[in-house]
């Protein structure tokens, strides 16, 4: 794997996020290693027990979390394309998904017969996980904006046997506005927002090169617009999970602080099977609402995973 170094501005930010020297060194070390091979059993097609039995014939597999038997780790080195070329993958028995990326849907906790929106759905890892938890019952609107991304999403939905999804191609702000105008409110919404991807350094080392602070600030503005429209589409008492694969507070706590300032929402505690650090209440010159400490920062060095941010909001009353 090509080795890229951190840009000085990025390194300075990370050191600020991880003031403990050993902690930062552990982070710097792990982001230069490839990610572990996690897959998620697709229970729409096969039980975790049966899948594990099949996979054990070719690989060393373990289920690291008792409460989530669908999360499977292939605990060995794999050849190029080996995980994607297995018959079980072609049959849609599992989805190749990094463990952090599974956390948003665990936080969302979808149930059968709910009306759920997945606003930035492609390539469909979380969409297929939502449909799985819904047992294909209820309605799932899976939205993305670009045609190329829709094709990947559609292919993954088919392969995973998702039958309760409606795929839409719209700007998420426009989609939420139209649904809100018709009074069509969702029980649950997943907003896995477009982000600067600081948490994906292990699987996508080019992020080292592509990262810049201007992009972080631009994305932060876009994310606030998205969450504002998403909240308006939520039923009173409904749940919105906001997640990103970045560590930048501008794209994480700042967005949740914005939601708390402008809407009648509260931040919920989340119980996840990974080590989480509480959300930050200060960054640069900004101070955030103390409620943001209930959000989860997932760091690669804590879990031998990628990096992630997850938060869960409940709408308390009608928006005036």
């Amino acid at each position: 794997m090509a080795r890229y170094e951190m840009k000085p501005a990025f390194e300075a930010r990370m050191k600020k996020l991880m003031p403990d020297k050993e902690d930062f060194e552990a982070f710097s070390k792990i982001v230069h290693t490839g990610p572990r091979n996690f897959v998620r059993c697709n229970t729409l097609k096969i039980s975790p027990e049966n899948l594990v039995e099949r996979l054990k014939l070719k690989w060393n597999v373990i289920q690291p979390f008792k409460e989530y038997p669908e999360i499977i780790l292939i605990n060995q080195e794999l050849g190029p394309g080996e995980i994607g070329n297995a018959l079980e993958h072609l049959l849609g028995h599992y989805y190749v998904q990094e463990v952090c990326s599974m956390m948003s849907v665990i936080a969302l906790n979808p149930k059968p017969n709910e009306f759920i929106l997945d606003l930035c759905a492609s390539p469909g890892s979380k969409t297929t996980q939502i449909a799985m938890k819904m047992e294909n019952k209820g309605t799932l609107i899976a939205n993305d904006v670009a045609m190329g991304r829709i094709a990947i999403l559609a292919s993954n939905l088919e392969k995973n046997g998702v039958t309760n999804a409606i795929v839409t191609r719209m700007d998420s702000v426009n989609l939420c506005t139209k649904l809100e105008n018709q009074g069509m409110k969702a029980d649950k919404i997943l907003l896995d927002a477009p982000c600067s991807g600081e948490g994906t350094l292990r699987s996508s080392p080019k992020t080292f090169l592509m990262w810049n602070e201007k992009v972080v600030n631009n994305l932060s503005r876009q994310q606030k617009k998205l969450i504002a429209h998403a909240i308006r589409c939520l039923k009173v008492g409904g749940t919105l999970v906001y997640s990103t694969c970045t560590h930048a507070p501008e794209e994480d706590e700042s967005v949740i602080d914005f939601a708390l300032k402008n809407f009648p929402v509260k931040v919920e505690h989340i119980s996840l099977p990974l080590k989480c650090r509480p959300g930050l209440t200060e960054w640069k010159t900004d101070n955030y609402n103390k409620e943001v400490t209930k959000t989860c920062r997932i760091y690669p060095q804590d879990n031998d995973s990628e990096g992630f941010f997850v938060s869960k909001l409940t709408l308390l009353k009608e928006i005036e």
Binding site: T163, A165, I166, T168
Partner: peptide, 22 residues
Amino acid sequence: GNLTREQLDKLSQLLRIELIGI
């Protein structure tokens, strides 16, 4: 999904639907 034909029709007038179901 648990939407009726009427609800799906209404949705199709509202949103740019690419695909439904499998």
